[in-house]
Design a protein around this nucleic acid. Structure first.
Lengths: 125, 125
DNA sequence: TCAATCTATATGACGCGTCATTCAATGACA
DNA sequence: TGTCATTGAATGACGCGTCATATAGATTGA
């Protein structure tokens, strides 16, 4: 039986979905149009920028985003191909990699972040 | 410059993302495992179930979900192939279609909905 | 020191959503 | 009524995320 509590939950869920899709969609389209990177690319870039100077990033990244390990790997592929990030081998553990922003990456991040924050403010109020 | 207001927005956004992905992921996996349909399939089924007896659904569906028109079309393809829904031509406007649950669709929906609501409650608290 | 196991990342096949386009039916208006 | 624009839906190419697996390096314990 469909209780009114169920109705509430469903409504709440749909409202979360709507605000999530609306916001993510708006940011994604804007970043794509102005900077030619998608939302996930930006978010990885953002995480890397947040933690300049610490080691073995890839691993840590996986813990700070809902993305899959393999998704992160592919996002980084694209960022690297775009010349925004570079993978550095890690001396203590040669399985690990850590990431560095290139100059281009740092530059793009800092202007894209402005846009990103503005759209968040606009959409989350 | 990164204001603390910006930090707050980013934190808020990440928290929305996490709760969205956690919830959507949990529901999707559960429905997939127990009923062999994905979250989007269920949500369309749910919308169709909500509005039994009204006409020309396809169109209306697009307005009640963040999915694209073409996404809805493909989800309905799968639901139809799975025998859960059927497309009915609409007499007044032969471009339009409306959807009907099959008996199997109604049955699956009513048991899957229980699971769905339970997971919503669990994840949205 | 050598297996067995575990851990960090990469990769390929696959499914799904998106965009642009297409197609058919409808409406508007001369 | 004939043209032109519009609308509802389907389709194909494409990009991305996921899952399962692969690979290489690390760790453990006998």
């Amino acid at each position: 039986m469909a209780t009114t509590r169920d109705r509430q939950l469903v409504e709440q869920w749909r409202s979360i979905q709507n605000s999530y899709f609306r916001t993510a969609g708006a940011i994604d389209r804007a970043l794509e149009a102005k900077f030619d990177i998608g939302l996930n690319e930006f978010e990885i870039l953002d995480l890397v920028a947040e933690s300049e100077e610490s080691a073995c990033r890839m691993k840590a990244l996986g813990e700070r985003t809902p993305m899959t390990q393999s998704a992160v790997s592919k996002v980084v592929d694209r960022l690297e191909k775009a010349g925004l990030v570079s993978r550095q081998t890690c001396a203590d553990d040669r399985r690990s990699l850590f990431l560095e922003l290139t100059d281009a990456g740092r530059a793009l991040h800092s202007t894209a972040a402005v846009e990103h924050r503005a759209l968040l403010k606009e959409n989350l109020g």
